[in-house]
Design a protein around this nucleic acid. Structure first.
Lengths: 205, 205
DNA sequence: CTAGTGACTATATTGGATTATAGTCACTTC
DNA sequence: GAAGTGACTATAATCCAATATAGTCACTAG
Protein backbone atom coordinates (compact mmCIF):
# COMPACT_ATOMS: atom_id res chain seq x y z
CA UNK A 1 0.00 0.00 0.00
CA UNK A 2 3.00 2.30 0.42
CA UNK A 3 3.93 1.98 -3.25
CA UNK A 4 4.53 5.18 -5.12
CA UNK A 5 1.84 7.27 -6.76
CA UNK A 6 -1.74 6.16 -6.93
CA UNK A 7 -2.80 6.92 -10.50
CA UNK A 8 0.82 7.49 -11.57
CA UNK A 9 1.49 11.09 -12.62
CA UNK A 10 3.44 11.97 -15.73
CA UNK A 11 6.39 9.63 -15.96
CA UNK A 12 8.46 8.02 -18.63
CA UNK A 13 10.45 4.87 -19.18
CA UNK A 14 10.10 1.69 -17.13
CA UNK A 15 8.16 2.26 -13.94
CA UNK A 16 10.29 -0.08 -11.88
CA UNK A 17 13.84 0.94 -12.44
CA UNK A 18 16.55 1.42 -9.90
CA UNK A 19 17.39 4.83 -11.31
CA UNK A 20 13.79 6.01 -10.90
CA UNK A 21 13.93 4.98 -7.29
CA UNK A 22 17.27 6.70 -6.84
CA UNK A 23 15.76 9.89 -8.23
CA UNK A 24 12.80 9.71 -5.90
CA UNK A 25 15.05 9.01 -2.96
CA UNK A 26 17.34 11.93 -3.75
CA UNK A 27 14.36 14.18 -4.37
CA UNK A 28 12.79 13.29 -1.05
CA UNK A 29 15.98 14.19 0.76
CA UNK A 30 16.65 17.37 -1.16
CA UNK A 31 13.07 18.63 -1.16
CA UNK A 32 12.79 18.00 2.55
CA UNK A 33 16.11 19.75 3.26
CA UNK A 34 16.11 22.67 0.87
CA UNK A 35 12.54 22.79 -0.41
CA UNK A 36 11.09 22.17 -3.83
CA UNK A 37 12.01 25.55 -5.32
CA UNK A 38 15.58 25.62 -4.05
CA UNK A 39 16.31 22.16 -5.36
CA UNK A 40 17.37 22.09 -9.01
CA UNK A 41 17.05 19.12 -11.29
CA UNK A 42 20.82 19.29 -11.69
CA UNK A 43 21.19 18.90 -7.93
CA UNK A 44 19.26 15.66 -8.11
CA UNK A 45 21.31 14.51 -11.08
CA UNK A 46 24.55 15.22 -9.26
CA UNK A 47 23.29 13.45 -6.16
CA UNK A 48 22.75 10.20 -8.03
CA UNK A 49 25.78 10.63 -10.29
CA UNK A 50 23.99 10.98 -13.63
CA UNK A 51 23.43 13.85 -15.99
CA UNK A 52 20.38 16.04 -15.78
CA UNK A 53 19.19 14.87 -19.18
CA UNK A 54 18.95 11.33 -17.91
CA UNK A 55 16.47 12.36 -15.26
CA UNK A 56 14.12 13.36 -18.04
CA UNK A 57 14.14 9.79 -19.31
CA UNK A 58 12.18 8.94 -16.18
CA UNK A 59 10.15 12.01 -15.37
CA UNK A 60 8.29 14.38 -17.62
CA UNK A 61 9.13 17.42 -15.58
CA UNK A 62 10.36 18.64 -12.25
CA UNK A 63 6.74 18.89 -11.20
CA UNK A 64 6.27 15.19 -11.92
CA UNK A 65 9.05 14.48 -9.44
CA UNK A 66 7.30 16.75 -6.96
CA UNK A 67 4.12 14.80 -7.55
CA UNK A 68 5.87 11.54 -6.76
CA UNK A 69 7.20 12.89 -3.47
CA UNK A 70 3.85 14.41 -2.67
CA UNK A 71 2.14 11.08 -3.20
CA UNK A 72 4.54 9.41 -0.82
CA UNK A 73 3.95 12.02 1.85
CA UNK A 74 0.17 11.94 1.50
CA UNK A 75 0.09 8.15 1.40
CA UNK A 76 2.04 8.12 4.64
CA UNK A 77 -0.69 10.27 6.18
CA UNK A 78 -3.35 7.90 4.92
CA UNK A 79 -1.50 5.00 6.47
CA UNK A 80 -1.18 6.77 9.80
CA UNK A 81 -4.91 7.37 9.75
CA UNK A 82 -5.68 3.79 8.83
CA UNK A 83 -3.56 2.64 11.73
CA UNK A 84 -5.40 4.93 14.14
CA UNK A 85 -8.77 3.77 12.89
CA UNK A 86 -7.76 0.14 13.19
CA UNK A 87 -7.44 0.63 16.93
CA UNK A 88 -11.12 1.49 17.35
CA UNK A 89 -14.04 -0.86 17.73
CA UNK A 90 -17.26 1.04 16.96
CA UNK A 91 -17.89 3.21 13.90
CA UNK A 92 -18.42 6.16 16.24
CA UNK A 93 -14.98 5.68 17.70
CA UNK A 94 -13.52 5.05 14.27
CA UNK A 95 -14.83 8.34 13.04
CA UNK A 96 -13.49 10.23 16.00
CA UNK A 97 -10.07 8.64 15.69
CA UNK A 98 -10.00 9.18 11.96
CA UNK A 99 -10.67 12.88 12.27
CA UNK A 100 -8.24 13.28 15.11
CA UNK A 101 -5.44 11.35 13.39
CA UNK A 102 -6.02 13.29 10.20
CA UNK A 103 -5.40 16.60 11.91
CA UNK A 104 -2.63 15.39 14.19
CA UNK A 105 -0.65 13.82 11.37
CA UNK A 106 -1.20 16.80 9.12
CA UNK A 107 -0.06 19.37 11.64
CA UNK A 108 2.83 17.16 12.68
CA UNK A 109 4.00 17.27 9.12
CA UNK A 110 3.57 21.02 9.16
CA UNK A 111 5.73 21.48 12.23
CA UNK A 112 8.33 18.77 11.67
CA UNK A 113 8.71 18.60 7.92
CA UNK A 114 7.68 22.02 6.82
CA UNK A 115 9.37 21.81 3.43
CA UNK A 116 7.50 18.66 2.50
CA UNK A 117 4.31 20.11 3.89
CA UNK A 118 4.68 23.07 1.58
CA UNK A 119 4.82 20.76 -1.41
CA UNK A 120 1.63 19.07 -0.27
CA UNK A 121 -0.04 22.44 0.22
CA UNK A 122 1.05 23.57 -3.19
CA UNK A 123 -0.20 20.31 -4.65
CA UNK A 124 -3.59 20.82 -3.04
CA UNK A 125 -3.73 24.41 -4.25
CA UNK A 126 -3.05 23.38 -7.81
CA UNK A 127 -5.33 20.38 -7.72
CA UNK A 128 -2.55 17.97 -8.62
CA UNK A 129 -3.56 14.32 -8.96
CA UNK A 130 -1.71 13.36 -5.79
CA UNK A 131 -3.83 15.73 -3.73
CA UNK A 132 -7.03 14.61 -5.44
CA UNK A 133 -6.15 10.99 -4.82
CA UNK A 134 -5.50 11.78 -1.18
CA UNK A 135 -8.87 13.45 -0.74
CA UNK A 136 -10.50 10.55 -2.52
CA UNK A 137 -8.77 8.15 -0.17
CA UNK A 138 -10.08 9.96 2.86
CA UNK A 139 -13.55 10.07 1.41
CA UNK A 140 -13.44 6.34 0.80
CA UNK A 141 -12.42 5.62 4.40
CA UNK A 142 -15.23 7.85 5.55
CA UNK A 143 -17.69 6.00 3.34
CA UNK A 144 -16.70 2.70 4.85
CA UNK A 145 -17.08 3.93 8.40
CA UNK A 146 -20.51 5.40 7.69
CA UNK A 147 -21.63 2.25 5.89
CA UNK A 148 -20.53 0.11 8.82
CA UNK A 149 -22.31 2.40 11.24
CA UNK A 150 -25.50 2.19 9.22
CA UNK A 151 -25.32 -1.56 9.05
CA UNK A 152 -24.86 -1.86 12.78
CA UNK A 153 -27.77 0.51 13.35
CA UNK A 154 -25.50 3.00 15.06
CA UNK A 155 -26.11 5.70 12.42
CA UNK A 156 -29.29 6.96 10.81
CA UNK A 157 -30.29 5.59 7.40
CA UNK A 158 -32.76 8.13 6.07
CA UNK A 159 -30.32 10.48 4.37
CA UNK A 160 -28.86 9.14 1.12
CA UNK A 161 -25.47 7.63 1.84
CA UNK A 162 -23.69 9.71 -0.79
CA UNK A 163 -25.10 12.91 0.59
CA UNK A 164 -24.12 12.03 4.12
CA UNK A 165 -20.59 11.18 3.11
CA UNK A 166 -20.27 14.24 0.94
CA UNK A 167 -21.43 16.68 3.57
CA UNK A 168 -19.31 15.15 6.31
CA UNK A 169 -16.40 15.37 3.95
CA UNK A 170 -17.15 19.06 3.51
CA UNK A 171 -16.94 19.47 7.27
CA UNK A 172 -13.57 17.74 7.30
CA UNK A 173 -12.31 19.48 4.17
CA UNK A 174 -10.52 22.36 5.92
CA UNK A 175 -8.44 19.79 7.78
CA UNK A 176 -7.94 17.38 4.89
CA UNK A 177 -6.62 19.95 2.46
CA UNK A 178 -3.11 20.99 3.53
CA UNK A 179 -3.55 24.38 1.94
CA UNK A 180 -6.51 25.04 4.21
CA UNK A 181 -5.17 23.24 7.26
CA UNK A 182 -2.36 25.74 7.61
CA UNK A 183 -4.92 28.47 8.17
CA UNK A 184 -6.59 26.44 10.88
CA UNK A 185 -3.68 25.42 13.02
CA UNK A 186 -5.10 27.28 15.99
CA UNK A 187 -8.15 25.02 15.81
CA UNK A 188 -6.12 21.83 15.73
CA UNK A 189 -6.88 21.03 19.36
CA UNK A 190 -10.57 21.77 19.60
CA UNK A 191 -11.78 21.68 16.02
CA UNK A 192 -11.80 17.95 15.33
CA UNK A 193 -13.22 17.07 18.74
CA UNK A 194 -16.08 19.54 18.53
CA UNK A 195 -16.78 18.81 14.91
CA UNK A 196 -16.72 15.06 15.48
CA UNK A 197 -19.39 15.47 18.13
CA UNK A 198 -21.49 17.64 15.85
CA UNK A 199 -21.20 15.18 12.99
CA UNK A 200 -22.04 12.26 15.23
CA UNK A 201 -25.10 14.09 16.50
CA UNK A 202 -26.16 14.53 12.89
CA UNK A 203 -25.70 10.81 12.37
CA UNK A 204 -27.89 9.80 15.29
CA UNK A 205 -30.67 7.44 14.18
CA UNK B 1 -25.83 50.23 11.64
CA UNK B 2 -23.70 51.06 8.62
CA UNK B 3 -21.51 53.39 10.67
CA UNK B 4 -17.78 52.96 10.39
CA UNK B 5 -15.68 50.52 12.37
CA UNK B 6 -17.03 48.46 15.17
CA UNK B 7 -14.36 48.68 17.91
CA UNK B 8 -12.62 51.54 16.10
CA UNK B 9 -9.17 50.62 14.89
CA UNK B 10 -6.19 52.94 15.34
CA UNK B 11 -7.34 56.46 14.58
CA UNK B 12 -6.56 59.94 15.70
CA UNK B 13 -8.28 63.26 16.12
CA UNK B 14 -12.03 63.76 16.36
CA UNK B 15 -13.93 60.65 15.31
CA UNK B 16 -16.71 62.57 13.59
CA UNK B 17 -15.05 64.98 11.27
CA UNK B 18 -15.87 65.77 7.70
CA UNK B 19 -12.25 65.27 6.66
CA UNK B 20 -12.18 61.80 8.18
CA UNK B 21 -15.26 60.93 6.17
CA UNK B 22 -13.73 62.39 3.04
CA UNK B 23 -10.65 60.25 3.55
CA UNK B 24 -12.73 57.13 3.99
CA UNK B 25 -14.78 57.96 0.94
CA UNK B 26 -11.72 58.58 -1.22
CA UNK B 27 -10.09 55.44 0.12
CA UNK B 28 -13.09 53.31 -0.67
CA UNK B 29 -13.08 54.53 -4.25
CA UNK B 30 -9.34 54.25 -4.76
CA UNK B 31 -8.94 50.89 -3.03
CA UNK B 32 -11.82 49.47 -5.00
CA UNK B 33 -10.42 50.79 -8.28
CA UNK B 34 -6.70 50.32 -7.96
CA UNK B 35 -6.37 48.09 -4.90
CA UNK B 36 -4.88 48.71 -1.50
CA UNK B 37 -1.24 48.33 -2.52
CA UNK B 38 -1.43 50.47 -5.64
CA UNK B 39 -3.11 53.31 -3.80
CA UNK B 40 -0.70 55.67 -2.07
CA UNK B 41 -1.56 57.86 0.85
CA UNK B 42 -0.60 60.82 -1.35
CA UNK B 43 -3.23 59.73 -3.86
CA UNK B 44 -5.86 59.97 -1.16
CA UNK B 45 -4.54 63.33 -0.05
CA UNK B 46 -4.68 64.68 -3.59
CA UNK B 47 -8.18 63.32 -4.06
CA UNK B 48 -9.52 65.30 -1.12
CA UNK B 49 -7.31 68.33 -1.77
CA UNK B 50 -5.19 68.20 1.37
CA UNK B 51 -1.62 67.30 2.06
CA UNK B 52 -0.54 63.81 2.96
CA UNK B 53 0.58 64.92 6.41
CA UNK B 54 -2.95 65.97 7.23
CA UNK B 55 -4.21 62.46 6.65
CA UNK B 56 -2.03 61.33 9.52
CA UNK B 57 -3.93 63.64 11.82
CA UNK B 58 -6.87 61.30 11.39
CA UNK B 59 -5.36 57.87 10.86
CA UNK B 60 -2.43 56.19 12.52
CA UNK B 61 -1.28 54.48 9.40
CA UNK B 62 -2.31 53.43 5.94
CA UNK B 63 -3.33 50.11 7.42
CA UNK B 64 -5.74 51.90 9.74
CA UNK B 65 -7.43 53.35 6.66
CA UNK B 66 -7.57 49.86 5.20
CA UNK B 67 -9.15 48.68 8.42
CA UNK B 68 -11.85 51.33 8.14
CA UNK B 69 -12.70 50.28 4.60
CA UNK B 70 -12.61 46.67 5.57
CA UNK B 71 -15.07 47.28 8.37
CA UNK B 72 -17.45 48.97 5.98
CA UNK B 73 -17.27 46.10 3.53
CA UNK B 74 -17.73 43.44 6.18
CA UNK B 75 -20.52 45.35 7.86
CA UNK B 76 -22.29 45.50 4.51
CA UNK B 77 -22.11 41.72 4.34
CA UNK B 78 -23.53 41.43 7.83
CA UNK B 79 -26.39 43.68 6.82
CA UNK B 80 -27.12 41.65 3.72
CA UNK B 81 -27.25 38.54 5.85
CA UNK B 82 -29.51 40.18 8.41
CA UNK B 83 -31.85 41.18 5.64
CA UNK B 84 -31.96 37.63 4.28
CA UNK B 85 -32.59 36.19 7.72
CA UNK B 86 -35.38 38.68 8.37
CA UNK B 87 -37.31 37.14 5.50
CA UNK B 88 -37.54 33.75 7.22
CA UNK B 89 -40.02 32.58 9.82
CA UNK B 90 -38.66 29.50 11.57
CA UNK B 91 -35.18 29.18 13.09
CA UNK B 92 -34.53 26.32 10.67
CA UNK B 93 -35.23 28.58 7.72
CA UNK B 94 -33.29 31.39 9.31
CA UNK B 95 -30.25 29.23 9.60
CA UNK B 96 -30.50 28.05 6.02
CA UNK B 97 -30.91 31.58 4.73
CA UNK B 98 -28.13 32.88 6.88
CA UNK B 99 -25.64 30.36 5.60
CA UNK B 100 -26.74 30.83 2.02
CA UNK B 101 -26.65 34.64 2.17
CA UNK B 102 -23.25 34.52 3.82
CA UNK B 103 -21.74 32.59 0.96
CA UNK B 104 -23.64 34.37 -1.78
CA UNK B 105 -22.71 37.82 -0.56
CA UNK B 106 -19.14 36.81 0.04
CA UNK B 107 -18.61 35.33 -3.39
CA UNK B 108 -20.46 38.22 -5.00
CA UNK B 109 -17.92 40.50 -3.45
CA UNK B 110 -15.18 38.25 -4.73
CA UNK B 111 -16.44 38.39 -8.30
CA UNK B 112 -17.69 41.96 -8.47
CA UNK B 113 -15.39 43.87 -6.19
CA UNK B 114 -12.29 41.82 -6.22
CA UNK B 115 -10.01 44.57 -4.99
CA UNK B 116 -12.09 45.15 -1.89
CA UNK B 117 -12.41 41.43 -1.37
CA UNK B 118 -8.64 41.16 -1.33
CA UNK B 119 -8.46 43.66 1.49
CA UNK B 120 -10.98 41.65 3.46
CA UNK B 121 -9.03 38.46 2.79
CA UNK B 122 -5.82 40.11 3.87
CA UNK B 123 -7.55 41.42 6.97
CA UNK B 124 -8.75 37.94 7.85
CA UNK B 125 -5.30 36.50 7.22
CA UNK B 126 -3.68 39.00 9.57
CA UNK B 127 -6.38 38.77 12.19
CA UNK B 128 -7.17 42.48 12.02
CA UNK B 129 -9.87 43.70 14.40
CA UNK B 130 -12.31 44.28 11.54
CA UNK B 131 -12.19 40.64 10.58
CA UNK B 132 -12.46 39.50 14.15
CA UNK B 133 -15.45 41.75 14.70
CA UNK B 134 -17.06 40.35 11.58
CA UNK B 135 -16.64 36.76 12.73
CA UNK B 136 -17.97 37.75 16.14
CA UNK B 137 -20.99 39.33 14.51
CA UNK B 138 -21.77 36.16 12.58
CA UNK B 139 -21.35 34.09 15.69
CA UNK B 140 -23.76 36.34 17.54
CA UNK B 141 -26.40 35.99 14.85
CA UNK B 142 -25.92 32.25 14.95
CA UNK B 143 -26.31 32.24 18.71
CA UNK B 144 -29.61 34.06 18.47
CA UNK B 145 -30.99 31.68 15.88
CA UNK B 146 -30.01 28.64 17.91
CA UNK B 147 -31.43 30.13 21.08
CA UNK B 148 -34.72 30.86 19.36
CA UNK B 149 -34.80 27.34 17.95
CA UNK B 150 -34.21 25.88 21.37
CA UNK B 151 -36.91 27.99 22.94
CA UNK B 152 -39.44 26.95 20.33
CA UNK B 153 -38.49 23.31 20.82
CA UNK B 154 -37.30 23.06 17.24
CA UNK B 155 -33.71 22.31 18.24
CA UNK B 156 -32.27 19.92 20.80
CA UNK B 157 -31.30 21.28 24.21
CA UNK B 158 -28.94 18.66 25.62
CA UNK B 159 -25.69 20.00 24.21
CA UNK B 160 -24.40 23.11 25.98
CA UNK B 161 -25.43 26.17 23.97
CA UNK B 162 -21.89 27.53 23.70
CA UNK B 163 -20.58 24.25 22.39
CA UNK B 164 -23.33 23.99 19.81
CA UNK B 165 -22.73 27.50 18.57
CA UNK B 166 -19.01 27.07 18.52
CA UNK B 167 -19.04 23.88 16.54
CA UNK B 168 -21.57 25.13 14.03
CA UNK B 169 -19.42 28.19 13.64
CA UNK B 170 -16.51 25.90 12.91
CA UNK B 171 -18.53 24.33 10.13
CA UNK B 172 -19.29 27.73 8.68
CA UNK B 173 -15.78 29.07 9.20
CA UNK B 174 -14.42 28.25 5.74
CA UNK B 175 -17.20 30.37 4.28
CA UNK B 176 -17.10 33.16 6.84
CA UNK B 177 -13.40 33.83 6.54
CA UNK B 178 -12.71 35.52 3.19
CA UNK B 179 -9.21 34.10 3.11
CA UNK B 180 -10.65 30.60 3.21
CA UNK B 181 -13.73 31.30 1.12
CA UNK B 182 -11.61 32.00 -1.92
CA UNK B 183 -10.31 28.43 -1.80
CA UNK B 184 -13.84 27.10 -1.65
CA UNK B 185 -15.49 28.93 -4.49
CA UNK B 186 -16.21 25.67 -6.30
CA UNK B 187 -18.30 24.61 -3.32
CA UNK B 188 -20.32 27.79 -3.23
CA UNK B 189 -23.35 26.15 -4.81
CA UNK B 190 -23.55 22.88 -2.93
CA UNK B 191 -21.56 23.48 0.21
CA UNK B 192 -23.93 25.65 2.22
CA UNK B 193 -27.01 23.63 1.25
CA UNK B 194 -25.49 20.30 2.19
CA UNK B 195 -23.86 21.64 5.31
CA UNK B 196 -27.03 23.35 6.44
CA UNK B 197 -28.84 20.05 6.22
CA UNK B 198 -26.12 18.29 8.14
CA UNK B 199 -26.10 20.95 10.84
CA UNK B 200 -29.88 20.88 11.12
CA UNK B 201 -29.82 17.11 11.46
CA UNK B 202 -27.35 17.57 14.32
CA UNK B 203 -29.77 20.03 15.92
CA UNK B 204 -32.74 17.70 15.82
CA UNK B 205 -34.26 17.26 19.28
C1' DC C 1 -5.47 77.04 20.12
C1' DT C 2 -6.98 74.96 15.30
C1' DA C 3 -6.20 73.82 10.57
C1' DG C 4 -2.82 72.67 7.66
C1' DT C 5 1.79 71.85 5.23
C1' DG C 6 6.77 71.38 2.98
C1' DA C 7 10.67 69.19 3.61
C1' DC C 8 12.84 65.30 5.38
C1' DT C 9 14.30 60.12 6.39
C1' DA C 10 14.24 55.31 6.41
C1' DT C 11 12.21 51.65 4.28
C1' DA C 12 9.98 49.39 0.36
C1' DT C 13 9.31 48.81 -4.64
C1' DT C 14 10.64 48.79 -9.37
C1' DG C 15 13.17 48.17 -13.88
C1' DG C 16 16.16 45.94 -16.39
C1' DA C 17 20.62 43.96 -17.17
C1' DT C 18 22.65 39.45 -15.54
C1' DT C 19 22.63 34.86 -14.16
C1' DA C 20 20.46 30.34 -13.22
C1' DT C 21 17.34 26.76 -14.40
C1' DA C 22 13.93 23.63 -16.83
C1' DG C 23 13.60 21.12 -20.53
C1' DT C 24 15.16 19.30 -25.43
C1' DC C 25 17.84 16.96 -28.91
C1' DA C 26 21.28 15.23 -31.68
C1' DC C 27 24.76 12.53 -30.58
C1' DT C 28 28.07 8.82 -28.59
C1' DT C 29 29.29 4.41 -26.60
C1' DC C 30 28.70 -0.28 -25.61
C1' DG D 1 18.79 -1.26 -29.22
C1' DA D 2 19.84 0.40 -24.38
C1' DA D 3 22.27 3.59 -21.36
C1' DG D 4 23.75 7.96 -21.06
C1' DT D 5 25.40 12.84 -22.10
C1' DG D 6 27.17 17.83 -23.62
C1' DA D 7 25.72 21.60 -25.62
C1' DC D 8 21.91 24.39 -26.55
C1' DT D 9 17.53 27.66 -25.93
C1' DA D 10 13.84 29.96 -23.89
C1' DT D 11 12.07 31.23 -19.72
C1' DA D 12 12.40 32.29 -14.84
C1' DA D 13 14.85 33.86 -10.83
C1' DT D 14 18.27 37.22 -8.88
C1' DC D 15 20.57 41.29 -7.96
C1' DC D 16 21.18 46.18 -7.36
C1' DA D 17 20.87 50.96 -8.33
C1' DA D 18 17.29 54.33 -8.96
C1' DT D 19 12.88 55.65 -7.57
C1' DA D 20 8.69 55.85 -4.81
C1' DT D 21 6.29 55.63 -0.55
C1' DA D 22 4.96 55.57 4.47
C1' DG D 23 5.33 58.09 8.17
C1' DT D 24 7.31 62.25 11.12
C1' DC D 25 8.14 66.86 12.63
C1' DA D 26 9.04 71.47 13.04
C1' DC D 27 6.83 74.93 11.29
C1' DT D 28 3.29 78.80 9.36
C1' DA D 29 -1.22 81.21 9.10
C1' DG D 30 -5.26 82.67 11.08
Amino acid sequence: MSENASSAPQSRGPSDHSVREQIVEAAEEHFSHYGYEKTTVSDLAKAIGFSKAYIYKFFDSKQAIGEAICSKVLNAIVEAIEEAVAGASTPTEKFRKMFKALVTTGSDLFFNDRKLYDIAAHSAGEGWPSARAYAQHIKQMLLEIIREGRESGEFERKTPLDETVHSIFLVMHPYVNPLLLQHNLDLVEDGPVQLSSLVLRSLAP
